[in-house]
Design a protein around this nucleic acid. Structure first.
Lengths: 353, 353
DNA sequence: ACCGTGTGGGCGAACGTTCGCCCACGAGGG
DNA sequence: CCCTCGTGGGCGAACGTTCGCCCACACGGT
């Protein structure tokens, strides 16, 4: 149970009979001007003593920790978790470790998390928590201390952003429902104060207007990104506008709540209400019915964010335009489009009549 | 974009007109033998210059980083994510940061993750990835370098374990199904080589035998903890033993796949097949139908692991018995027990009859 | 006048590395 | 025989802290 003592490079050097600086060159440095035998002796000694380099000391002199900071929201939204885990793995592939901080439910500890990261001298920070969108202090800290990339807009701007095209997402989902013949299309949206929500809502309205349908505010319900919140919003929406035949939901997690509320209300999906969502989290296909959704490249978002951040750290210039990854509609059963697709295919099948 | 330079304590001291060691005492140390005015001057200077202490340097002399390492599996299992996020938050409440590594799908990078943590001199490690159960090398590294706590058994043992009573879990779930009158009770289990699986299977058999039912190997299906794997296993199980009327599933994530397979096979839940699972992840109640499940205290597991680890780091003695947290059955609709409960209550309702 | 004591702050050393420069030695060429 | 290199390795300094000890000074008591 006692703390194991670490063996330092000096001990390795002593048993190999060289100065510790020489041992350093062989074991960690790149500038190896050492004979092959000496090097072998040093490596053997290190091996035998179980030497593990102390990167703390290295960081001190090199003024770089090879560590990234990651601010994530709490684990309630699988989509965000997926993105941040992908970011962590990508960072590690590039030789960087990741120090994470998960926001407490209120998000009030964000600034304190950032300060912790800064004090530990991370080389850069990835802000992957939607709650940060409302946090002035975090924006300032991030801008003041070293490079950072955000996955949502940050107050005050000035930080490169990686994300997807939310307006497209809203438009694509809605267009699909319109294409299936729906007209009374409701939407269970995220928090109105978030940009994601507003963009997706714009896309939704774009598609509606394009089809000559005037958007009706009564068809729009706000929810808090949780299944529970979405279930409640759906219930209210159904009471307010019973004529709804289709629903565009702003996240797969909320779609679970929507499906659940629909189930309780006795409305069949897709026969009674067609549902299209966004994200395509891994188990979207295992919901009942399998969820049609606009796939957001979650993992890729995390990876690209790391790429960008690493480039900034290396001092390379980065584009100041937000990097928006393309989205793609995945048709499954919840929208009722699959049967239509199959029918269409059957109609045009050359092997048939 | 340029790397911001950090201001050191020497600069603060210079502008305050004191030696840097004195500044150190008032800003970070506890041994403040400094007059109130001098202290105020130093604090003001630090404030004005935007001083952020460099914990890297501090760690070097104090031989402690106030950082914990966390090895988690990839994000596919929400239950594990929940545990590790809770652990991170708990660590932060105790003033520790957390360096995470998420295993790649194969889990082959586990040893390299651990080495990264060790090189960064984390004060302790939490192993929260079931895949580690088969990894000899990780066990050795963890035992050799500083304190560690695991959430599943680790080859070679020697590490304190925090978890829940899996045998109880299997027994409780199965007993409930038996109590509802089921006899042909199948189980969709996790990977057989894992201890969790074997323990839950033991509990399942205990309950069966207790009720005078001889366990039938044909009723047991192995799956890989994913919804997809569980769906496939369920399909095979239903073909092999069509008479099944109830299913005990080893995780909520797998239960999604089970529900999905049941839905596709046209078996209604709970009318056709009753389902009880384990974990109680946050959206279990939003599945269709709401999932009955044995709640595992996921967040508490993470918190207790951190507590234990911190105690080990502080040099306190720790119990060598595994810390097993109690589990609890949550009855929702998927087992059909809710109607029964309601009926019972109605029968004994003093306002009626 | 002397000593002891307490208060406020300075100062050297150490933590474990990396970095750049220096030096000794031997070989080869003129 | 001397000068010039190249090779192999040593060595001092620095990174930004903390820690413990030291010192100067003032004050009070005897």
């Amino acid at each position: 149970m006692a703390q194991r003592r670490y063996v330092s490079i000096k001990e390795v050097a002593a048993t190999a009979g060289v100065s510790f600086q020489t041992a350093s060159k062989v074991l960690n440095g790149g500038d190896v001007r050492v004979s092959a035998e000496t090097a072998a002796r040093i490596v053997a000694a290190a091996e035998r003593l179980g030497y593990q380099p102390n990167t703390i000391a290295r960081s001190l002199v090199q003024r770089s920790t090879a560590t990234l900071g990651l601010i994530a929201s709490d684990a309630t939204d699988v989509a965000i978790t997926l993105t941040s885990v992908a970011a962590e793995q990508a960072a590690r592939r590039h030789g960087h470790a990741v120090l994470v901080g998960h926001l407490a439910p209120g998000g009030g500890d964000a600034a304190s998390i950032v300060r912790t990261l800064i004090e530990r001298r991370v080389d850069g920070v990835i802000a992957a928590a939607p709650d940060l969108e409302e946090n002035e202090e975090v924006g300032e800290l991030l801008r003041a201390h070293g490079p950072a990339v955000s996955l949502q807009s940050i107050p005050g701007g000035g930080l490169p952003l990686v994300g997807s095209n939310h307006r497209d997402t809203g438009r694509i989902a809605t267009e699909h429902l319109i294409g299936l013949g729906h007209e009374a299309i409701g939407t269970v949206a995220g928090l109105f104060r978030r940009r994601v929500t507003r963009s997706r809502l714009h896309g939704y309205e774009d598609a509606l207007r394009q089809a000559g349908i005037e958007p009706d505010e009564g068809l729009v319900a706000e929810a808090d990104w949780t299944p529970g919140g979405a279930a409640a919003a759906t219930k209210a929406l159904l009471e307010r506008r019973p004529q709804i035949t289709a629903l565009f939901v702003h996240s797969d997690m909320m779609a679970m709540g929507v499906l659940s509320a629909l189930y309780e209300a006795g409305r069949r999906v897709p026969a009674g209400v067609a549902v299209v969502s966004c994200d395509d989290i891994p188990f979207a296909q295992f919901l009942a019915p399998p969820l049609s959704t606009v796939r957001v490249p979650l993992a890729e978002t995390g990876e690209r964010a790391v790429d960008l951040l690493l480039r900034m750290i290396a001092g390379e210039p980065v584009p100041d335009k937000p990097l928006l990854l393309p989205v793609e509609l995945i048709v499954r059963e919840s929208c009722g489009g699959l049967e239509t697709q199959r029918a269409n295919r059957r109609d045009s099948d050359p092997n048939r009549g």
